[in-house]
Write a protein that binds this DNA or RNA. Structure first.
Lengths: 357, 357
DNA sequence: CTGAAAGCGCTTACAG
DNA sequence: CTGAAAGCGCTTACAG
């Protein structure tokens, strides 16, 4: 096995082997224009023979930018966050950037120190994945944005300069679908909001209000779906609950499980819809009606904001802490495709079904 | 908003401000021994005032090592892989390393080029997450290991110098549990093996053979659980199938769904067990008996192998392509805690239940 | 078209 | 205990 410590060929070695100056090799490497065909060939040959690869670190030192994008999140086990990471990685790799993943605010380690360390690495930009709006992470967003071009992916209205995941619209659509099925109203088991302003829950409320339906109090649920099971059990005792919109698919699964364990039928007695199109929604019985977000595409757009700035400092566009508003003219912000996926867990309410039967 | 492009203070600025030489500041930064208390204080003050942070890139250029660990995988949507990434990130961050995530072999982009790019960044080491044993990724493992200290996390026997996830033992235990419940034999819906040699499937077979049970042909299933649903439907027509060991929890859920849709009861008619302890197993009806692997701990151990080498080149220990055997004396390789989690999806076979009832 | 020189921000012998 | 100098591998004016 070759020793990993061996010295790798440097630009000097290539220059010597090709009989040109280091400057010329550098020019060749960076696609410089003024280069005789002869030298170009000689360098190409040397590069090939030595299997030379430019040292990205040295390059980063000169440009004071390491060709990487830093992803900061609290946790990647949430389906949406994980997909966002995959989308970011792919878009970044296409452009030659490396992706760095840092998990903060999960109670381990000092956030400030971790973030500082990250900044020292001089990534070209940073994307904060904050769907869950962890208060710890959120409180550092401004600090990070001061040092680095930053885009925050969250559930909030885009007027704040972030990249919204379009949850409001989804919540609205899912609820409207349930109402059109004939349900008098739709109950809501909500994920933590923590101050987001344009959430799936807001969409749910809006659809209800527009339809003139009663707006029940949302039932708060943590990210732990086992809590959702308890909520499902609880809701099973209320006959008027015929439709439930759950904050995500795991919570929907938990609610459904709670209902089933209490002897309710889903969807015959109660309809339940989820959110995100987590693949598990296809595996449960019943399978779960949901809202499909294209998280990978959103991740790709976050990268685009950081990497494809047309002219000038992307840091300005991604303003977080009172920076300029950003919605104007940022074409990448066009809405990301999303749609309702109807599966087995939703149906007309029992009263209508009975009337038809 | 402060412009991100502003020049950050360098070690020179600190030296000037503190009235000492750059060398002395460097010594201070690296905890050097010979330093008068007076200068130490002056430097500390300057660092504080300027909010100075050493440039990791410059440091990396000198040491020719970027303080980072490169994770290479095909996909992080698989539960185990995602947990491994989280475990790696945490262990790495604790030691001051950054984690880089690169997804290769998913059909997008040139693997060779991606890997070369990664190597150029000079991480201190690389961990290949290859539970699914993607043939493309696997074929590059040797190439990577030649350039970088590497540890491969997979399902194979540890004699190959990799870090096994302990699946063999798990498969054995799950199957044995099912047999002890009274099932005559256990059917197996297998995840892709692709040449792994110490898999959950091998453990299943071993348990069956030891018990003198018939060994049915494993039913191959892709990573897509919808295929598992079809398999569940198919198996529902065989009365002799009373117990099924599925390659992972998503597949178990799919199989269960197939069985339920065909009118079978789980576990009354058929028991189904999964693998990995994916949280979804708690949300389905019935919830899924499974084998809990501590993926985060395994990830942490991978980092430990790379970062805590006691004396000398970890590259040797992690030999992949015919390097020295590595099992001897590597104490971090002690078995990772894992255990059977019994939930609702398994029970004695119908015959026994009837006899009892 | 081409190259010598300076410099990016550090660390590390080496010499006081 | 302390500092001047060289050097890590590149890029970028600047001057031919």
């Amino acid at each position: 096995m070759v020793n990993a410590q061996q010295r790798m060929p440097s630009i000097k070695d290539v220059a010597r082997q090709a009989g040109v100056s280091v400057t010329t090799v550098s020019r060749y490497l960076n696609g410089g224009p003024h280069l005789s065909e002869q030298k170009r060939l000689a360098i190409a040959k040397a590069v090939e023979e030595l299997n030379y690869r430019p040292n990205t670190i040295a390059r980063a030192l000169v440009s004071s930018e390491f060709q990487s994008i830093a992803v900061i999140a609290t946790d990647i086990s949430l389906y949406g966050t994980m997909q966002l990471v995959q989308g970011i990685e792919q878009a970044a790799r296409q452009r030659g950037y490396l992706v760095t993943v840092t998990l903060v605010g999960n109670g381990r380690g000092n956030v400030r120190e971790t973030v500082d360390q990250l900044i020292r690495n001089r990534p070209i930009g940073c994307v904060i994945l904050d769907i869950e709006r962890s208060s710890l992470l959120h409180s550092f967003a401004g600090y990070i944005a001061k040092a680095l071009p930053t885009v925050i992916v969250d559930e909030t209205d885009r007027t704040q300069g972030n990249l919204p995941i379009g949850a409001y619209h989804g919540g609205y659509q899912v609820t409207q679908y349930l109402l059109r099925l004939g349900h008098k109203t739709v109950y809501h088991v909500a994920i933590p909001e923590n101050g987001n302003t344009y959430t799936r829950s807001f969409g749910w409320r809006k659809a209800l209000e527009e339809a003139g339906a009663v707006v029940p109090s949302p039932i708060p649920c943590s990210w732990d779906p086992r809590e959702a099971e308890q909520i499902g059990r609880y809701l099973s005792s209320y006959l008027e609950v015929t439709a439930i919109f759950a904050g995500n698919d795991e919570i929907a699964a938990g609610v459904i499980r709670g209902l089933l364990l209490e002897g309710k039928r889903v969807p015959a007695d109660v309809s339940v819809a989820g959110f995100d199109d987590n693949p598990i929604g296809e595996l449960t019985v019943p399978s779960i009606t949901t809202w499909r977000q294209d998280f990978q595409e959103i991740g790709a757009r976050a990268v685009s904001r950081l990497a494809d700035e047309p002219d000038g400092k992307p840091g300005d566009k991604s303003g977080v802490s009172g920076g300029r508003a950003s919605s104007e003219g940022c074409t990448v912000d066009d809405e990301v495709p999303a749609r309702l996926i109807i599966r087995e867990s939703t149906a007309p309410p029992p009263s209508l079904a009975a009337a038809e039967g």
